[in-house]
Amino acid sequence: MEQETLERLRRGDAGAYRDVVSNCAPRLLRLAERLGHPAQEAEDLVQDAFLALVRSVDRLEGRAAVSSWLTRVLLNRHTDVVRSRVLDRSRRPAAPDAPAPADRDEADRVRAALRRLPEAEHHVLLLRYFEGLPYDEIAHAVQAPLGTVHSHAFHGLRRLRALLEEDAT
């Protein structure tokens, strides 16, 4: 993490917070929405991430970029929300069936299949191909070794292809 930014944050420099929010919020908001959160929930997740930064700023060592660290927090929060929804759904009547494949265009089909991937592969593919992040930054964000990230990308792509073919039949 950039030491200068960290130092300014630790000093409680309001300007530093504004800079971090200005620089990171667009990507975080976009990512949250691409993870499937409605606009307001996406904003809450982003705010949660900035809150976590404030809480943890004294403990951060600066080994990763602030933006990568915030991305990691956002992904963790997203996982929490998804899990709580799964638990909630398990207590409610089943929702109506999703639209049949024929009702969706190709982009919808791809995004729907992406969401069916294992979480780690989903996150890596989303960060790589939707957000365009370099692999080393993705590794920081998902807290995994670089080789593991490559592996998630490789197998995620192959699994995604299989799901799309399965969906088409």
Partner: peptide, 11 residues
């Protein structure tokens, strides 16, 4: 092919 599909599906 899959990467191409993904890039065309960027929301």
């Amino acid at each position: 092919g899959t990467i191409g599909s993904l890039r065309e599906a960027v929301p």
